[in-house]
Computed example of a mutant assay.
Amino acid sequence: MPKNALVVMRYGPYSAIGLSVEYRTFRLEGMQAVLAEDGHKVILEKTEDWNVVELVVNGEVVFQCNIKDLEFGGDGKLDPLCKEARRAVLNAY
């Protein structure tokens, strides 16, 4: 996939530490940073599916994970899921 791809990041609500179920983007910051560093434009899109993160490139889901498995905040460089997501976007058609 060439640089400057448009990546739609779909994310669902989740419950953190017993709090109410809400849409939160704190766990998405690292993944957004990693993709932006590669020159991709990331658009956030809410979905009704709980605990999910999906990356969509050219209408195809290229990566999916549980939002609770992502590291909270940070730059994403040490998060193995962010590295896997980066590879999935780079290998997308």
Rank of each mutant, 00 (worst) to 15 (best):
A88M: 02
E60V: 00
K68G: 06
G74S: 10
A33F: 14
G73N: 07
E45G: 03
V61R: 10
S20P: 14
K41D: 13
V42Y: 10
T25N: 08
N66D: 12
R24K: 09
T47F: 12
V52R: 01
I17P: 15
H40I: 02
G59N: 01
S20T: 06
S15R: 07
C82I: 05
D49V: 03
E29F: 15
G76R: 00
R24N: 03
I17H: 12
D38N: 10
K83M: 14
E29I: 00
V42Q: 05
K46I: 01
T25A: 11
A5H: 14
V56S: 08
L81Q: 05
E71S: 03
D75G: 05
E60T: 01
N58Q: 10
L81A: 01
Y93W: 15
D75A: 01
L78K: 09
G74C: 11
N66K: 00
G30H: 09
R86F: 13
N51G: 10
Y11S: 02
E45A: 04
V62E: 13
N4P: 08
L78P: 14
K77N: 11
G73V: 05
A33L: 11
M9T: 02
R27G: 08
A85S: 07
N51W: 04
R24Q: 06
L28C: 06
L81D: 04
M9V: 00
L70H: 04
R86N: 06
G59V: 00
V53E: 06
P13M: 06
N51F: 10
V42M: 06
H40P: 00
V34W: 13
G74T: 07
N66M: 00
R24A: 09
G73L: 11
E54G: 01
E84W: 09
G74R: 03
D38Y: 13
Q32R: 03
E84L: 02
Q32F: 11
E54N: 08
Q64M: 13
A85N: 04
G76Y: 03
V7Q: 07
Y23I: 02
S20N: 13
A36H: 14
C65S: 07
F72A: 06
P2K: 06
L44V: 00
S20Y: 15
Y23M: 04
I17C: 10
C65G: 01
K41T: 08
R10E: 11
A33H: 11
A33C: 13
G73T: 06
L6A: 10
V61T: 05
Q32L: 13
Q64T: 05
G59A: 07
G73P: 09
K46F: 14
V52H: 04
V53H: 02
I67K: 01
G76H: 05
M31T: 00
G73Y: 15
F72H: 09
A5Q: 14
L35Y: 12
R27W: 14
H40D: 07
A33E: 12
D79R: 00
K46E: 13
F72T: 09
H40V: 01
V21D: 15
V53G: 05
V34P: 13
S15K: 03
D38S: 04
T47M: 09
M9G: 02
A85V: 00
